[in-house]
Design a protein around this nucleic acid. Structure first.
Length: 498
DNA sequence: TTAAACGTTGGT
DNA sequence: ACCAACGTTTAA
């Protein structure tokens, strides 16, 4: 905190343990580097770091934190409703570090990105507006909070508070469209940032160097504001919705788990060799076919139903990537997103290319499909989460454990193709609400039809005839909902064409 | 780049 | 006041 660092730095408040996550409730292992350093474990106590097993997964703002604008603390407890809570809670901008009540920001049309991994953390509308992006986005680099970390053996498990989502700020709460002074008049000084004493050389042992030489690394990066950080979502203003920068218009409401980050890392999207996916492809198709069959069943039973509600019915599930705790993933992502949408926020996600990844969002069943392009098993990656946070020290520890560490991985992903802005669902407000219709239409890629004759006119491998011919299928399709049709389209090219 | 060190903050 | 530990700086 050398005071300089942009405004934010000055009064930057550090975060503290949430005390609720698994990590926080755990006891020191007594074996990790940091534990060994502790005096209680016979160490010198110089590192002053928390046990690796106890690194909080959702550090919170200290109770002393207050809104920069109104000077008051978070008041989310005083109201009901997600929106209210949001507006009255304190949000810390990861860019400028300002902590404010969203409601205190008078920005008519605000655009902000809410970090779902860290409570009360976002990229404030102001920064977004000014085009700022995360300083550390590129390297998680130095400094900045951490958000999780190796939970003991099970590092990276997304626990309780981690599953959140980002939302989109719609017509902001504040009436006045006129934002506030760009550069922001607010200075945050109130705090003690001007303590004379602090700057002095204080090192006890080493040569007392001043610490005024900031790291330049910070705040340089950006450039492309496309991908802030993994785990972040974009928020657009009401009418604008998704930020234009996103190269892909495909917006899914799917929940992207921790594993997806890994995916970003490895998958070079289209470049991926198809080879290995051969088999999985088959399986994939099978799955789809099954889905299709189920749907047909349903259609028969109730030709009218619109299916929107059953989207997650197909629990084929095994919520595989679910965290061990199980507490993490709760309601269907879709509905959450919908809720947010209702509030004026929206969840969005940018996908990498992919033609066949449409309605995945809704369930685990799609996992199979995903696997096709994902080299690692779903669980294998369960652990990633983002770590843009954390200071170098801890980060390193982890990095080590994660073979290769994401440090190398992430940048690659970012440059190569836009990374998946992970969209997790906001858990913050936590107020359940009824599901609503999908926000966005899904996109489907329709490939050009082959020249070959109608498949149904050809004999089956078995030599027998088709049970249903094209027209019959078409008749069936007519009773399907859009969603269901999408699934059908993925069953095989022929159906898709039909 | 990673690990260690440490000032300082935050909770008790 | 004390202790834990966050975030940053510095050394290796």
């Amino acid at each position: 905190m050398s005071s300089s660092k942009g405004a934010g730095a000055g009064s930057r408040r550090r975060r503290t343990r949430c005390r609720k996550c698994n990590a926080c409730q755990r006891t020191e292992c007594g074996e990790c580097h940091f534990c060994k350093d502790m005096k209680k474990f016979g160490g010198p106590g110089r590192m002053k770091q928390s046990c690796l097993m106890r690194q909080c997964t959702a550090p919170v703002l200290p109770h002393t934190a207050v809104c920069l604008l109104c000077g008051e603390a978070g008041k989310e407890d005083t109201v009901e409703g997600e929106e209210e809570k949001f507006n009255l809670s304190l949000m810390e901008c990861s860019i400028c570090n300002e902590i404010v009540h969203p409601a205190c920001l008078k920005m008519g049309k605000a655009e902000a990105v809410i970090n779902n991994e860290i409570p009360n953390c976002w990229e404030c509308p102001k920064c977004k507006r000014e085009g700022k992006s995360n300083k550390d986005s590129s390297g998680d680099g130095a400094g900045k909070r951490r958000a999780d970390n190796g939970e003991d053996g099970v590092r990276w498990k997304l626990t309780d508070e981690l599953v959140q989502h980002k939302k989109k700020l719609l017509p902001a709460p504040a009436p006045s469209p006129a934002e506030e002074p760009p550069a922001s008049a607010h200075k945050r000084k109130k705090e003690k940032e001007l303590q004379p004493t602090d700057t002095g050389p204080k090192k006890k042992l080493k040569g007392g160097r001043e610490k005024h030489l900031k790291k330049a690394s910070e705040q340089s990066s950006d450039g492309n504001k496309l991908q802030p950080l993994p785990g972040w979502g974009r928020v657009g203003s009401g009418d604008l919705e998704v930020k234009g920068s996103i190269s892909h218009s495909a917006i899914h409401l799917s929940h992207i788990g921790p594993s997806d980050l890994e995916k970003t890392k490895t998958s070079q999207g289209a470049l991926e060799p198809l080879a290995q996916s051969d088999k999985s492809h088959q399986r994939e198709k099978l799955e789809r076919f099954k889905q299709m069959c189920q749907m047909l069943e349903r259609v028969k039973n109730s030709s009218s139903s619109s299916s929107s509600s059953d989207s997650d019915s197909d629990t084929d599930s095994r919520g595989s990537e679910g965290s061990g705790g199980g507490s993490s993933r709760a309601a269907s992502p879709t509905s959450r997103a919908q809720r947010l949408a209702a509030l004026g926020f929206s969840a969005s996600e940018e996908e990498e290319e992919e033609e066949e990844e449409e309605e995945e969002g809704r369930n685990g069943g799609s996992e199979a499909a995903r696997n096709g392009k994902q080299p690692k098993g779903p669980r294998a990656n369960c652990q990633e989460k983002e770590n843009h946070h954390r200071a170098a020290s801890r980060g390193s520890e982890r990095a080590k454990q994660q073979a290769g560490g994401r440090k190398g991985g992430r940048p690659a992903g970012q440059t190569g193709l836009h990374m998946v802005a992970r969209t997790q669902f906001l858990q913050w407000p936590l107020v359940p609400s009824p599901p609503k219709p999908l926000l966005q239409l899904e996109r489907h890629v329709v490939r050009p039809p082959p020249d070959s004759p109608e498949p149904d006119s050809l004999p089956l491998d078995s030599g027998s005839d088709h049970v249903m011919q094209r027209d019959i299928w078409l008749a069936v399709f007519q009773h399907l909902s859009y969603r269901e049709l999408c699934v059908c389209m993925r069953v095989c090219r022929t159906w898709s064409r039909w």
